[in-house]
């Protein structure tokens, strides 16, 4: 019974950690730069969940004040993550622009091939 309670209480954290770790794995292990950016995005979205899930209060409603409700979830993480998402897409676009330029300069977006080309010189 204790085990079941622990699972219910921490399931969100464990999924967040799984997403974070797989994002980290993609960034470290894969050489393709667009795949690396996707991994970076996975890591980023796991951080969004990490911020949002403790702000949820069971039985609460979205933080839009009205007469019928008294319990609201915490609005502060929503604000932080809202701006983080838009900044995230802006930095993603910057990364993609760099990848496009790298592809034009080296003819490849694989890290290993770029390193191999540099060693030949």
């Amino acid at each position: 019974m204790d085990l079941l309670q622990a699972i219910v209480a921490h399931y969100n954290h464990w999924i967040i950690i799984f997403l974070m770790v797989s994002g980290l794995y993609i960034v470290v292990a894969r050489g393709n730069m667009i795949k690396k950016l996707v991994g970076l995005g996975l890591f980023q979205t796991s951080v969004y969940l990490l911020y949002l899930s403790p702000g949820k209060i069971l039985g609460g409603t979205p933080p839009i004040i009205s007469e019928q409700h008294t319990v609201y979830s915490n609005p502060l993480p929503h604000v932080l993550i809202l701006t983080a998402i838009v900044v995230g897409v802006a930095t993603l676009a910057l990364g993609l622009a760099l990848v496009v330029r790298i592809n034009e300069a080296f003819g490849t977006i694989e890290e290993d091939e770029i390193f191999a080309g540099e060693e030949d010189e």
Binding site: A90, A93, L96, A97
Partner: peptide
């Protein structure tokens, strides 16, 4: 700003 930036990025890509 957000609309302008997104469209400008899309145009340049």
């Amino acid at each position: 700003t957000v609309a302008g930036t997104m469209v400008a990025i899309f145009y340049s890509f």
